[in-house]
């Protein structure tokens, strides 16, 4: 009797670790595939050799891998994890499994502000620095988030909140499209690709910036797993065990906005990863305890985005799909499944 009970106490952690390991293997495989596949085919062994040799190697394959594929793959991994965690935070915050930065319109809000800032900055003849993009995206995320929060105080049903978020997203996207239509030619080239969602054109300075930003936030989310776990039973219970609820809410909004802002700034809006990846992670770990789920979310999101980017890049090569289209194909059915499950309960 005691034996089984003790097993119950440890079950979650070991299952989470096993799941993490499997996803990590998948992630590594997808990452290596991302480096190998493309217009210039390379074998994994060759990739390893090129990586070991360092960026100095002058061959075409080395150029492609060091300058294009590696930063792009790293960006996809980092931003995928960021989106997934951002989604998980928002789901915990709203106690709604269908919440994520894309569905709630936060990504689109970020995109709008980035577009405005980009047009202004490029118009004055300057280049956008990564920090400026993220700053603009963060401001946009917070603005939209504030708006969604205002709505959420008014509505009592979760589906209304989602509908409101989707509408906010549409409004922001429409505004962005107007801006793109009226922007001058030089800006359009920059905006058009990005506003559809893509990891293409990742550069090392971008990657460095993203890595610092996103990894810090990932660590912050993991550090928050204790209060997040208490928050899952609702605010009053969280408060009763000593959680500073208003502080935690502020932290959740800030961190999730920063995470999705990084994505919006560098890859544009990427749909449904924030719902699909945490959902898969929770199913895989068979728990929603943040301590177990946050690492799993991070890895699942990273693998999901890495895989989707690979598909987007290679499926109809040389034509490249927007990554958002690919993530939608895989992610949207998850959302529908979640909604049907919610309805049947």
């Amino acid at each position: 009797m005691h034996g089984t009970k003790r097993a119950g106490e440890k079950d979650g952690a070991s299952r989470a670790l096993a799941f993490d390991l499997v996803v990590l293997l998948g992630l590594v495989a997808l990452f290596v595939a991302s480096l190998c596949l493309g217009s210039v085919e390379t074998t994994p062994a060759e990739v390893l050799r090129i990586l070991a040799a360092g960026p100095g190697d002058g061959s075409t394959a080395a150029q492609v891998i060091w300058q294009i594929r590696l930063p792009r793959a790293i960006e996809a991994v980092l931003l995928g994890g960021a989106l997934s965690l951002s989604g998980f935070l928002l789901q915990t915050f709203f106690a709604n499994p269908i919440a994520d930065p894309f569905v709630l319109g936060v990504s689109s809000g970020a995109k709008l502000v980035v577009a405005v800032v980009m047009i202004v900055v490029l118009g004055t003849g300057h280049i956008m620095s990564p920090a400026a993009s993220v700053g603009a995206a963060f401001a946009g995320s917070l603005l939209t988030m504030g708006f969604v929060l205002l709505i959420s105080r008014r509505v009592r049903t979760q589906s209304t909140l989602i509908v409101a978020g989707v509408m906010v997203g549409y409004i922001c996207s429409a505004a962005t499209n107007f801006l793109v239509a009226f922007a001058d030619d030089q800006s359009i080239v920059n905006l058009d690709n990005w506003s559809r969602g893509s990891f293409s054109g990742a550069t090392w300075p971008d990657v460095a910036f993203i890595a610092v930003c996103v990894l810090a936030m990932d660590a912050a989310v993991f550090a928050l797993s204790k209060p997040l776990g208490a928050y899952q039973l609702g605010e009053p219970y969280a408060q009763s065990v000593g959680v500073n609820v208003s502080g935690l809410r502020l932290l959740i909004v800030t961190v999730s906005s920063l995470l999705s802002a990084c994505v919006a700034a560098f890859a544009g809006p990427v749909s449904f990863v924030g719902i699909a990846a945490p959902h898969l992670a929770k199913r895989g770990v068979r728990s929603s305890r943040p301590l177990y789920v946050t690492p799993a979310c991070l890895l699942t999101g990273a693998a999901f985005c890495c895989g989707c980017d690979l598909v987007a890049r290679t499926l109809f090569s040389p034509v490249e799909l927007s990554v958002s289209a690919v993530t939608a194909v895989f992610g949207a059915p998850t959302v529908i499944a979640l909604m049907l499950r919610g309805r049947s309960r």
């Binding site: 119950g8 106490e9 979650g12 106690a95 499994p97 550090a223 797993s225 204790k226 776990g229 208490a230 899952q232 039973l233 609702g234 009053p236 219970y237 065990v241 000593g242 959680v243 929770k282 199913r283 068979r286 728990s287 929603s288 305890r289 301590l291």
Partner: peptide, 29 residues
């Protein structure tokens, strides 16, 4: 409290363990 919290994929043990919040360390292990 009166309200029944709606949870997703939490076992009863998970729910009971949240009561240990004030006694556990940084990560709540």
């Amino acid at each position: 409290l009166t309200g029944r919290p709606s949870t997703e994929l939490l076992t009863c043990r998970d729910v009971v363990e949240t009561g240990r919040y004030p006694f556990t360390g940084r990560l709540g292990v």
